[in-house]
């Protein structure tokens, strides 16, 4: 493990190299911006830069700033998700409560460092209590679909997203004050895996995994992408409290979870008959389109790290 300043500097170098690599590839292969893999990669790298700048600004206000940033992400993600779910007028107060009670409560628990409550609140308390609001309206039509889809939206957009900033509150011996780097590690590994899966699928991918869900995910691309992510994770172990081997194992889990997230969210979009969740981040669709893999990987990453590295 290295110091915080050199690690942040190293993170900056990685982002710089990625941006330069993206531009060089574009100039060398398709300067007119016609190559989809290079354009996708450059759009992702631009999004990392945007995120890094936002995180840096947020950190000026300390952990509270980071919480505020992720409250906005959760709010936008929930707005995108609930736009597509089954609902009726009877769910109005349920939906309002998700935005204006559950979301602030969850982030309050994260910011207060009440880790057990943050881990249990949405999957247990909200799961049991939120449907009561809908039930009290006395409208049984499609009741299970309505409450189940709302719970899904809350789990994905609030619970899973909130486990990203929750990494900052982990107490890892010898890693105090460095937990910010875990967020960088998580996002970089998952996104490198995304890009590699996509590029390898386009390049040599032949066998589609689930043609009805996605025309771009192949076995070749997925295996290749996971291998690339594991190697990248090993090379980035200096960002983490993990040994190189542990970082590679963690990256294997992150890459697989990222792939699962992509696949599951693609299935939901197909079911709801839409290509993108939203339109807010212009070339990327919505927040959920860009974050689906990170959202699935984050809670597993958080809980694995907490279980094995945090001393009780």
């Amino acid at each position: 493990m290295i110091g915080l300043a050199p690690a942040l500097f190293g993170l900056g170098v990685v982002l710089f190299l990625a941006a330069i690599l993206g531009q060089v590839l574009r100039e060398a292969i398709a300067p007119d911006g016609s190559h989809p893999v290079i354009e996708t990669m450059n759009a992702r790298i631009a999004a990392w830069w945007a995120f890094a700048v936002l995180m840096a600004l947020a950190l000026l206000a300390g952990k509270a700033g980071v919480i505020a940033l992720f409250v906005i992400v959760s709010f936008s993600a929930l707005r995108e998700f609930l736009t597509l779910t089954t609902k009726s007028v009877a769910d109005h107060w349920t939906l309002a409560a998700s935005f204006f009670l559950v979301l602030p409560a969850q982030y309050t628990f994260v910011a207060a460092g009440w880790t057990s409550l943050a881990a249990l609140f949405v999957p247990v308390h909200v799961f049991l209590l939120l449907p009561v609001i809908s039930a009290l309206q006395g409208r049984p039509e499609q009741f299970l679909a309505r409450v189940a889809e709302t719970q899904w939206a809350v789990m994905i957009s609030i619970y899973c997203v909130s486990s990203i900033p929750a990494l900052l509150w982990l107490q890892i011996p010898g890693f105090e004050g460095h937990t910010l780097l875990l967020i960088g590690f998580l996002i970089l590994v998952v996104q490198i895996s995304d890009i590699a899966q996509y590029a390898i699928s386009r390049g040599i991918g032949r066998r589609l995994i689930a043609p009805a869900l996605s025309g771009s995910k192949t076995w070749e691309g997925t295996v290749g992408g996971v291998v690339v992510a594991v190697l990248a994770g090993g090379a980035l172990s200096w960002l983490t409290p993990f040994t190189q081997l542990q970082a590679m194992g963690m990256s294997l889990v992150l890459a697989l979870m990222g792939f699962f997230g992509d696949l599951v969210m693609a299935a939901i979009k197909r079911d709801k008959g839409t290509r993108d969740w939203g339109h807010l981040i212009a070339p990327h669709g919505g927040f959920l389109d860009r974050l689906d893999s990170v959202i699935f990987a984050a809670p597993i990453f958080y809980h694995l790290t907490r279980f094995f590295w945090v001393t009780p």
Partner: peptide, 15 residues
């Protein structure tokens, strides 16, 4: 109409 149904005072954010 889902954001602000008739007679409700608190709106629900939806796209």
């Amino acid at each position: 109409n889902h954001v602000m149904p008739r007679g409700k005072v608190i709106p629900v954010p939806l796209i």
